[in-house]
Write a protein that binds this DNA or RNA. Structure first.
Lengths: 344, 344
DNA sequence: GGGCTGAATGACAGCGCTGTCCCTGGCGTC
DNA sequence: GACGCCAGGGACAGCGCTGTCATTCAGCCC
């Protein structure tokens, strides 16, 4: 009842511990009959193998680490939570476990982190979240140690990516393009844009999608484009800059939901009705997006699935399958809610 | 560079591995000089002990599990994220690591979970989040196996609690009492209340605080009190019920922020200006609370600290210190933002 | 000075698994 | 009929630590 070991199972099934090990790990050498006997014994004893022992003697640790940085205040945290949920589910399905590690944004003591991950924990893989997934130092540290990395929405790419691990993302260009077109289809022409963090590839791709959809290579009224950093706070001044212009845009498309919410907030303070006098759109579909007033039109990305895929990739890879795409691109979808409407 | 073991350290420091172990674990028997020599050797080799080996041979695993249930959509997820952050920091400080496990809300396959936690992972402790922290089955399963549990905002108490582990919470009664009084100080008399989940002790305590503050033992106009479940969705009908009454309350106090946001949403749809014609308040201070329009007046609980305390308790307990309070109550604080104002 | 004490350290046996190598016996082959 | 082969299964040696117990050697007492 308390703690069955592989020895107990072996005794009950009347085989050697090695055979039990083989059966439990799905290794080939084992007759169907033996297999059944072992399984039955394990079940009856309520046996669960010890992770530590497996990790110590074998080559797998059945551990995956999800590493994040940044604070709670940051709405991006929600994104992490959702990713994590997906990863946990994939882990559970594969007999793995998810460790959550955190590194302070300021600290760049990556070598200690890497050492812990590799030597102490011996994790089978690491899931890296922006901006960590773009830090060359951390990446190369991990790569040198032979750790499988999966990078969420990575920025650095090309040959480097091959070396630095797999990645998951959505087609940010298309997402922004489609959202801009949605606004245009509603009749908007003066569509303001708030940029994302300049160091993040997704930001540039989203902006490109917006520009191509709206101007199609034509002249670009730069006053419609304001800088932002993907945070709520950075969206505030950007929104103000856009809304205080003599000829106010009829719609504002922010590079993510956090900043779109900032637009909502500024519009509210300035007494501009949304979507009556201003349409607002974002990207990400944060949980909060459906809760704000009015509910935000945005682009949904399958964050949970992305987290699950990341974990699954590590699990499969450790198990021997060498799926080595450079990056997996997930489908996104437009979520039209109440913050957008045709201009008055 | 790649993987230093305790043997390497022992060789360099010219002592036995047992001595290295002693020094690294802070055990008493070791001269200052030896200690220094070992530390130096370990540093120079960049040595990090293997968790698996330690767990396998010793009695500690240096692992703490945070177990949650419920979906992302649920805003409560934010609460979990923040708790987790605190727990991670405490773990890091104590050389521990945080495992995040998840169990589907529907599934009540607690025995498999417990088995995994105990046999496979051998965790040193478990942090349980509502409603898991109130499940007698899971609790007794864990208790029987001798796992240290910390329950976040637990409901079951009394003698049972002693057996079922430590708990952390805030004084929900006082929090609600103070918020209600804040509203009354502003001049409100018709203050509606939206209840929390009936199975959660915090819900009852918050309601009691509200009732005592507002009615002080006097007659209770039940039409001012509407049922809720702590979720945004459950807040919608409750808010509607309150706001459609002939004599509308001038303020609504929801038992948590998610439901308060639902009130904001309904008020917005009904064209009721907040806080002009209606004040709205919640409890929790979710990150989203400061982002909605208008920013929500609420009660902040030190969630991160609570998570850290939970982890710290497990770590200290495993290390031998037997701090055994039944529950630690943290301070809360009123956060007055823009959703409340004196009635017109 | 012999014996006792206790602090400092080491020897050694596992912890519960997996990797590697080896043994066994039934079957096909020429 | 002797030989080879291979599926099926076992023996055994660790993996890198910690727990337990033994050993050493100052210092100290009478």
């Amino acid at each position: 009842m308390s703690k069955a070991t592989i020895y107990d199972v072996a005794r009950v099934a009347n085989v050697s511990i090695k055979t039990v090990s083989r059966v439990l790990n799905g290794e080939p050498k084992a007759s169907a009959e033996t297999r059944a006997r072992v399984m039955e014994a394990a079940r009856s004893l309520n046996y669960t193998p010890s992770l530590s022992a497996r990790a110590l003697s074998g080559s797998r640790s059945f551990l995956i680490a999800l590493v994040s940085s940044g604070g709670v205040s940051d709405n991006a945290m929600l994104y992490v939570t959702e990713l994590q949920l997906g990863a946990i589910q994939a882990c559970r399905a594969g007999g793995y476990h998810l460790l959550t590690e955190y590194i302070d944004a300021g600290t760049s003591d990556f070598s200690a982190l890497a050492e812990t991950l590799v030597s102490t924990l011996r994790v089978d893989g690491v899931i890296l979240i922006p901006p960590l997934c773009d830090d060359p130092q951390l990446l190369s540290l991990l790569a040198r140690r032979g750790v499988t990395c999966v990078r969420i929405s990575p920025t650095l790419d090309g040959s480097a990516e091959e070396k630095w691990g797999w990645g998951v993302d959505i087609d940010n260009y298309q997402a922004a393009f489609q959202m801009t077109r949605h606004l245009m289809d509603q009749g908007h022409r003066d569509i303001g844009f708030i940029q994302g963090h300049p160091k993040h590839a997704a930001a540039a791709q989203r902006e490109a999608g917006y520009r191509d959809a709206l101007f199609d290579g034509g002249p670009i009224p730069e006053h419609l484009i304001q800088p932002g950093l993907f945070t709520f706070d950075s969206g505030l001044p950007a929104a103000r800059a856009l809304l205080e212009q003599k000829r106010r845009p009829t719609a504002i498309f922010a590079a993510n939901d956090s900043m779109a919410m900032a637009v909502l907030s500024v519009a509210y303070k300035m007494g501009i009705p949304v979507p009556g006098a201003l349409s607002v759109a974002g990207i990400d579909d944060l949980p909060a997006a459906s809760v704000v007033c009015p509910p935000l039109t945005t682009v949904r990305q399958p964050v949970m699935e992305m987290g699950a895929a990341a974990a699954r990739f590590i699990i499969d890879r450790t198990a021997g399958q060498v799926g080595s795409y450079l990056k997996k691109v997930f489908d996104h979808s437009l979520v039209v809610r109440e913050s957008t409407a045709p201009p008055a």
